[in-house]
Simulated assay, not measured.
Amino acid sequence: MEFNKLLSFSLSLVLILSVAESFDYDEKELKTEEGMEAMYDRWRAHHKVSEKSPEKFNAFKATAQLVHNHNKLKKSYKLKINSLADMTNEEYRSAYTHQNLKLPGPGCPACPACPAASGCPACPACPGASGCPAAANAKDLPPRVDWREKNVISPPRWISVDYMALTSIEAINAIRTGQNLVLSQHQVYHCKPTCKISDGIIFDFAKDTGIATLESYPPEIKGCDKSKFGKTLVTIDGNQYPAASAPTEEAVMKAVAQQPILVGFSGKDDEYKAYAGGIFSGPCGGEGKTILIVGYDQDPDGTKYWIAKAAFEEDWGEKGYIRILRTPEGICQMYTYTVMPLKSEETRNIEL
C-alpha cells in the first residue's frame, strides 16, 4: 500500500482506537446471519465506524467466531473483538506486518553463517565481533527486567510496523539522555535518501541525519521540509545484531538487560490481531512483524515470558503490550532476527 494511503487509513484507526475498550456480545448473536449483522452494526456504532462492506462484514464474522471459540478453551491468553475486528487480511498485512522483514524458514542456518539456502533471507552484516556477542550465562542476569518502570518507553501508539525501529531509538535515547521523546516516522519517510525502508535504513538515517520529534514534524507536513525539523534531532552511533551468532534465550536476555531491542515475530495474524491479554503461546506462521522487547519476567507458577511493545495503541492487548512465552529456542522465530541501536553516553543529539 502506498505510504500516504496507508497513513490516511492508519490515522483513521487511531481515532477508532481512542474510543471505549470493551465490546460485549451474546452467544446467540453468533448463531444466525441476522444476529451477526446486528452484532456488527452494534460494533460499528461502538467504535464509530461508518464504513461497511461485504468483505469487512465477513472479516468481522470470522474474528467473532475465532474469539468466541478460542476463549472457550483453556489457553494461556485471551482474545477479544477489538477495534481491528473487521480488517480484511489485505488491510491488516498492509498496515501491521513488516513489508521488508522476511524471517528464515525451517532449516535456514542462523547467522553469521550467512546461508544461500533456498528461501532463506540474507543475513544482516554484523559490525565486527562486538555485533555478535556470545550467549550470556543466565545466572549473571537480573531475574526480571521491565524498562517501562524506568520511564524510557514512549507511550503506546499506532506506528507503521516498518518503522518500529523508531521505538528502539526512542528507548536508547531516553536511557542515555533522560529525554523521553516520540519520533516522527513522517520525517524519516519524506527525508531519507532512498524510497526503500528497513530497520537498517532507519538506523543509518538516525546516525547520519538525525530524527525529528513527532511534535515538530507531524503527519500534516508534506514532503521533506528541513525548516520543520524543530529543536532536536535524535542521533545514534549505529546498530548491532545481539543474537546473530547465538540465537538463544540467554543472548536475547543479555541484550534486553542492557536496553529494549527489536525482534522479528511470526505469531499467527488472526490470533495476534485479536490478542487481549495473557501469555501468547502460539500458533505461529503469520506474516513477519517486528516488536520491541522491553523486558522479561515470569508468572508465580514459573511460566516465563517476554514483555513486548507492539505497533498498536492502548486499546489492543495489555494496554498496547503483549506477553509472549519465553523458551530456550524462542517461539514464532523470535530469536532469528534481533537488532538494537547503539548510542554511547558521549553521543549528543543535534540541537538546532
Rank of each mutant, 00 (worst) to 15 (best):
S18Y: 10
V19H: 15
A20Y: 13
A20G: 13
E21R: 12
D26Y: 05
K28C: 03
K28R: 13
E29F: 01
L30M: 08
L30I: 09
T32Q: 07
E33A: 04
G35V: 07
D41P: 06
D41A: 08
W43P: 00
A45H: 12
H46M: 05
H47I: 02
E51Q: 12
E51H: 11
K52E: 10
P54G: 07
K56M: 07
F57S: 01
A59F: 06
F60M: 02
K61E: 05
K61F: 04
A62F: 04
Q65N: 13
V67W: 01
H68Y: 15
K72I: 09
L73Q: 15
K74M: 12
K75S: 08
S76F: 05
Y77S: 03
K78T: 15
K78G: 07
K80G: 01
K80R: 15
K80E: 03
I81C: 00
I81Y: 00
N82H: 07
S83Q: 02
L84Y: 03
A85N: 02
D86K: 04
D86F: 02
T88V: 10
T88C: 09
N89Y: 12
N89L: 11
E90N: 15
E91W: 08
E91I: 12
R93T: 13
S94K: 11
S94W: 15
A95F: 09
Y96G: 01
T97I: 09
T97G: 08
